[in-house]
Design a binder for these strands. Structure first.
Lengths: 229, 229
DNA sequence: CCAAAAGTGTTGACCGTACACCCATGA
DNA sequence: TCATGGGTGTACGGTCAACACTTTTGG
């Protein structure tokens, strides 16, 4: 079109997603086996190429939908990796996103690519290219966000008990929390709606279930409230 | 090379930089007049296109060097903007960086592109494309970083007084700080080395100059210290 | 009846914030 | 001598962290 642009070179752009889930008290990520060269058969993040006529955000949602079968996932752009030799096949710039999935919804969902598999963060295989770096960056961001925004709820079932929420935060921060202090703090925010039901799956006594009240949160934010855990 | 890559399309990639300076008690950004169509003659961030054989970081440093005449600036990748129609000329993905400059070093430096001009943030012109959004994002990031990392010193002369440092933080946070509390906190970190000299430029009494001790900071960080202001 | 998880309050330490006066000096 | 900015200490309130026992119930 305009000559000025044409003096420059174009590049492939990939979108890679770090997809987190929480299950059995552990943080997990969804990986898949790469099905083309180079590094075919190795474990990789979930990704794809940016197409014409789609924004980067759209591409990320498309890829997430395709691999998880779920839409409207929590998702945030992370960082763009642009080393010249990061992909030995061709020069590819990768824009990364991290996303949060409720694993039980994923398990109930069948319409999806099936070569993907959940791996506990602590025991995941080595990944191709610079994907391990991407995971490190995603974990850093997840820690920060979990502290300042109520995103933990995106990883738990809609109904959850306080002890379950606490174990999620323990998995994210990689340290134990005091249960009295934790409960005091989270309940004092008035963001959790107590239900009559109990979760009897973990203990004999059973723990009361709660729901995150998104509307209440939005209203508080408008008034200057700042989530912090 | 591999057929798989070739099924996908390539894109122009731009690097745009939000360059901050601090002068006369105000935060400023460096802008320049765009010299090609579309939007020729309008104010724009400083940027350029990613070339073959350079990493994105390298491209950002190249562009910063070209427009400021300075190298080794503090610089951090911010966000990647990828809406389809963000640049009406051609589809261009923009990877943004923000950078911090000591304005007095910039002023002493002559070997540079000269169409650039400093604008106070509060009175800057409307920028082309989505560049105003980029500035907003850079300001958000700057606030967070200034709080958690000792980056303020990148915007001040090597030797500075405590009141000057305070006024920088006031400009970044957009609110007034208590001078006793500010001084107490910053000095209690033991990161500032007091000099014998005074800055007589602002007050008649003169304010003692300090230097940021980068080595001390690195050592403290190794021991788990976390900067916070 | 006992093992295992749920649930509950208090205290001391520390940190953030608010606040007012004297000092040094150039004009 | 006076206007201007530099420099100093204390007290209060709120938040964070540490800590131990009782309750419930399935097996």
């Amino acid at each position: 079109m305009t000559p000025y642009y044409e003096e420059n070179t174009k590049h492939y752009i990939a979108v890679d997603c770090i997809i987190f889930g929480f299950d059995e008290g552990e943080l997990k990520i969804l990986l898949h086996k790469r099905n083309f060269e180079p590094e075919k058969g190795k474990w990789s993040l979930i990704g794809g190429f940016l197409q014409d006529n789609e924004s980067i955000d759209f591409a990320a949602r498309r890829i997430l939908q395709q691999y998880s079968g779920l839409s409207n996932l929590f998702m945030e752009q992370l960082y763009t990796f642009g080393e010249v030799e990061r992909d030995p096949g061709e020069r590819v710039i990768s824009v990364t996103f991290y996303a949060l999935i409720r694993i039980e919804e994923y398990n109930n969902q069948l319409k999806r690519e099936t070569s993907a598999q959940w791996w506990p963060i602590s025991r995941k295989p080595t990944l191709i290219f610079d994907h391990d770096k991407m995971v490190v960056k995603a974990l850093e961001r997840l820690k920060i966000r979990a502290k300042n925004q109520p995103i933990g709820f995106e990883l738990l079932p809609r109904k959850f008990s306080v002890p379950r929420l606490q174990s999620l935060y323990e998995a994210i921060y990689q340290r134990n929390l005091d249960k009295r202090n934790f409960r005091k703090k989270i309940l004092s925010m008035n963001l959790l709606q107590k239900l009559e039901e109990k979760d009897k799956g973990v203990s004999k006594k059973g723990a009361f279930l709660y729901q995150f009240d998104k509307r209440k949160y939005s209203k508080l934010v408008e008034k200057g409230f700042h989530f912090e855990l």
